Simulated scan of single mutants.
Amino acid sequence: MSDIHLPATRSRNMSAIRGKDTKPEMLIRRALHARGFRYRLHSQKLPGSPDLVLPKYRAAIFVHGCFWHRHNCSMFHWPSSRKDFWRKKLDANYERDERNVNALLVAGWRVAVVWECCLRGKHKRGDDSVADTLSDWLTSDKYFFTIPSNV
């Protein structure tokens, strides 16, 4: 099936998709702040510019959208049009994410990945549950942590 929008319209729609201050990211930020955690946002000094950086805990948190970061969950589906383009794009995003996480771990940072599906969708965990889980991780000694949906 071909795209129903003209290229200019599609371009405008795609450019409106935000990379910062997304709803899932804002939920995590508010919940952690309410629990007393203080953080920096989108530090460009670190690989991948993590969404939240907590220097006190030497922790970096990424809040990933399931589509853009190719999460294996019910919220991710391969697009049916321009298959080659999307496969290359999403595979490159996935590989870049792995490189960034590994670079942070090698540099001595702790890394958490919070997936969009744990905050939205039919298998969501709930905001408080995710924030409590993240709080527990921040005060633990685990180096890598991921929060997927309740499946």
Rank of each mutant, 00 (worst) to 15 (best):
V111R: 12
R125L: 15
K122P: 05
F62D: 09
V151G: 12
M26S: 10
S2I: 13
P79I: 10
K23P: 01
V114Q: 12
E116P: 10
E98F: 03
T9S: 08
Y143M: 15
F67Q: 01
R58Y: 00
V113F: 01
V114T: 04
V111Q: 06
K142Y: 08
W109T: 09
H42C: 08
K83E: 12
H64G: 04
T22I: 09
N93W: 10
H33S: 09
E116Q: 14
E95S: 06
H64P: 05
R18Y: 12
L105M: 10
W78N: 05
D132K: 14
F67Y: 14
P55M: 04
Y39C: 09
V111D: 04
S149N: 15
D84P: 02
L134N: 08
I4N: 12
D51K: 01
M1S: 13
V111T: 14
S140V: 10
G108C: 04
L41T: 05
P50E: 02
T139S: 13
T146G: 02
S149P: 09
F85T: 01
D51R: 03
R18E: 07
S2L: 13
R35I: 05
G48F: 02
G19P: 02
F67H: 06
A59W: 00
R120W: 01
I4S: 13
N100H: 09
F145E: 08
L104V: 06
W68A: 00
S135P: 10
M26F: 00
W86N: 00
K23A: 12
N72S: 07
G126N: 06
H42R: 05
P50I: 04
K124N: 13
R40G: 02
W86A: 00
R120N: 11
L41G: 08
R35H: 04
I61D: 05
L138C: 04
G126S: 11
R70K: 15
V53Y: 03
Q44H: 13
S15Q: 11
N72F: 03
H123P: 04
W137Q: 12
A103M: 08
S15H: 12
R70W: 04
M26L: 15
A31E: 14
K83W: 01
A131F: 00
H71W: 05
R30Y: 07
H69G: 06
H42D: 09
L54E: 10
D128A: 11
L52M: 13
F62A: 11
N150C: 13
S129K: 15
K56T: 15
E25R: 03
R87Q: 08
C117H: 07
E95H: 11
K23L: 10
E95N: 07
D136W: 01
S11K: 07
T133M: 11
C73S: 06
C118F: 01
R99W: 00
D132G: 09
C66S: 10
V101Y: 00
R82Q: 14
R99S: 09
G108I: 06
A31D: 08
L32N: 02
M1E: 08
V130T: 12
A60K: 09
K142H: 12
D136K: 15
E98R: 15
V151Q: 07
T146H: 03
M75F: 03
L27M: 14
G19L: 06
W115S: 11
E25C: 03
S81Y: 01
I17G: 03
N150V: 01
V106E: 15
N100Y: 11
Y39E: 10
M14H: 09
G108E: 07
L54W: 01
P47G: 04
W86T: 02
L46C: 13
I28Y: 02
E25V: 02
C117T: 10
R110Y: 03
